[in-house]
Amino acid sequence: MIHNLQLNSAGKLKHFLDIEGLNHSILTDILDTAESFISVTDRSIKKVPILRGKTVANLFFEASTRTRSTFELAAQRLSADILSLDINTSATVKGESLLDTLHNLQAMQIDMFVIRHQDSGSAHFFAQHVLPGVSVLNAGDGQHAHPTQAMLDMFTIRNYKQQFENLSVAIVGDIMHSRVARSQIHALNILNTGQVRVVGPPTLIPEQAESLGVQVYHDLNEGIRDVDVVIMLRLQKERMRGALLPSEEEYFAQYGLTAKRLQQAKPDAIVMHPGPANRGIEIESSVMDGSQSVILNQVTFGIAVRMAVMSMIAVQPVADA
C-alpha cells in the first residue's frame, strides 16, 4: 500500500514520495525528461507553459535553502503560481494541527504541495489526506526519503558517467540520520548500479544496513578504493552531543575526504555532496573546489530534475483518485 500510494491506476506518478517502489522505467523517464529541461534552463527566456494556471505551495516545516529555492524556480519555469509558506510564522505555531493547515491550504485550490517535515512518513501521511487530484512532492521527510535530491544525484552521475551498471559508488558519512542516503541507495539499486557502498563509523550506520542493498565499510580508504563516485554527506554538529562521535577533529581525521585520500578512488572519480557542506569536517576545501568536484553542477541539475518530476505529475488526469 505504501508504494502504490504514489502511482495512479496506469502506473504513472501521482505523488512523488519515495524512490522505493518505483521502477527502472519511471526513474529513467525522470532523468530523460530532466535532460529535455536542461535546454530550457539554458535559454534566455527560461519558461515553458506546462504548469500554467496551476498553483504550487511550498510547505517547509524544516529549514532549507537550496531545496526550497530550486523547487520555487522549477515551478516558476514551468509557469506555475507559487506560494511559499514560512511555517515558523504560520498557524501551526499557534496550535493548528497539521491536517487543519493542509485542509485550509487545499481550500485555496492548491494543485501541488511540496512538503518538507521532520517526521519520517509525513509525506505519506499528507498524500493519504489530500483531495483526489492534489499531488504531494516530498522535499524531505525525517530520516526517511528525499527523492528529488536522489534523482538529481542520479542525473549528475549519468551526466558524467553515462551509465550505472559498471560503477562503484561510495556514500560516506552519517547514513543513520540521512534521508538523502536512503533515497540514493534505492535509486542506485533500481538503476542497477554495479556496487553501492556506505562508509562511516558504526554509530552512524543503521542496523542491518546491508538489507538496503549496500556493502558496509568502516574504513574510508578501503571504502572509496577504486570507486567511480564519492558522495559525501553533511555531518550535523549535534551528533557530537549525542555521543555518536568524539569530536569534529577525530571525524575529519577518520572520515574527512582529503585530496590524498581521494587518490584511493579511480583517477576520474567524481565527488558529490548534497549540501550544505562543512568544509574541514567532512570534506577538505581543496577537494570541494577541486577538479573532481561536481557539487555546484548538482544544484543546477536540481532545477531541471524538479521541473521533470513536477511536469510528469501535472500531466496525469486530475481526478485519478
Binding site: 522505493e20 519520517s120 512518513g121 521527510d141 525525517g142 530520516q143 526517511h144 526519503a145 534521508r179 536512503r182 543503521p206 542496523e207 542491518q208 544496513a209 538489507s211 538496503l212
Partner: peptide, 15 residues
Amino acid sequence: HESAMATRLGLPPIP
C-alpha cells in the same frame, strides 16, 4: 524496533 524495517523507513530505532 531497531531492524531492517526501521532502517528502511528512517524511523528512530528502539534497540
